[in-house]
């Protein structure tokens, strides 16, 4: 009896998650497609936030994400992340994030990400904030990041 309830609940939750993704949004700049920039809600007075997205290079030459800027934070860095022997290390990516020709690079939890440092305001779930991305070849594009839950993990790999 309880197990039946769990099944109904599972279906409803999956449905809700899929409805949430109906708001997935894409941007094009040059040969690049930027898929669903998103972020995570933060606590009041939190100093740092994060932004994730998928970037597809439809062209025949590599491009590089060299900078990201967000008015919600005083500065941003492009970070990568590695785990060895259970220790998490976050580091700035030197020289930007390369998007190889014909490939998709995922900025995602526990991997590459845009780190927003020195947030002016709390990031609130359900809201959007602007983000400006600068690529070596494709130039600059303004996108909006959708703020998801505080520990959200969106998987954009099946979004194509």
């Amino acid at each position: 009896m309880f197990k039946g309830m769990k099944y109904v609940r599972a279906v409803m939750i999956v449905w809700a998650a899929l409805m949430g993704m109906a708001h997935a949004h894409d941007y094009e700049v040059g040969e690049l497609t930027i898929t669903h920039p998103w972020s995570r809600a933060t606590a009041p007075n939190a100093a740092n936030g994060v932004a994730y997205m998928a970037i597809t290079n439809n062209g025949s030459s590599d491009d590089v994400l060299i900078a990201a800027e967000a008015p919600v934070s005083s500065r941003t860095e492009l970070h990568t992340h590695e785990m060895t022997d259970g220790v998490m290390r976050m580091r700035e990516v030197e020289g930007g994030i390369t998007i190889p020709a014909g490939e998709t690079i995922y900025l995602e939890p526990s991997g590459l990400h845009v780190m927003l440092m020195g947030l002016d305001d709390q990031l609130v779930e359900g809201e959007l904030f602007p983000l400006t991305l600068t690529f070596q070849n494709a130039g600059t594009i303004d996108v909006e990041a959708a703020i998801e839950g505080p520990g959200a993990v969106l998987d954009l790999h099946s979004d194509h």
């Binding site: 769990k6 099944y7 998650a17 779930e125 839950g149 993990v153």
Partner: peptide, 18 residues
């Protein structure tokens, strides 16, 4: 799957159970 973990932990377990 495209999943929000705000709800995903519950979802995953519920799906696993179901």
């Amino acid at each position: 799957n495209v999943v929000l973990t705000g709800v995903a932990s519950v979802t995953v377990a519920a799906i696993a159970v179901a």
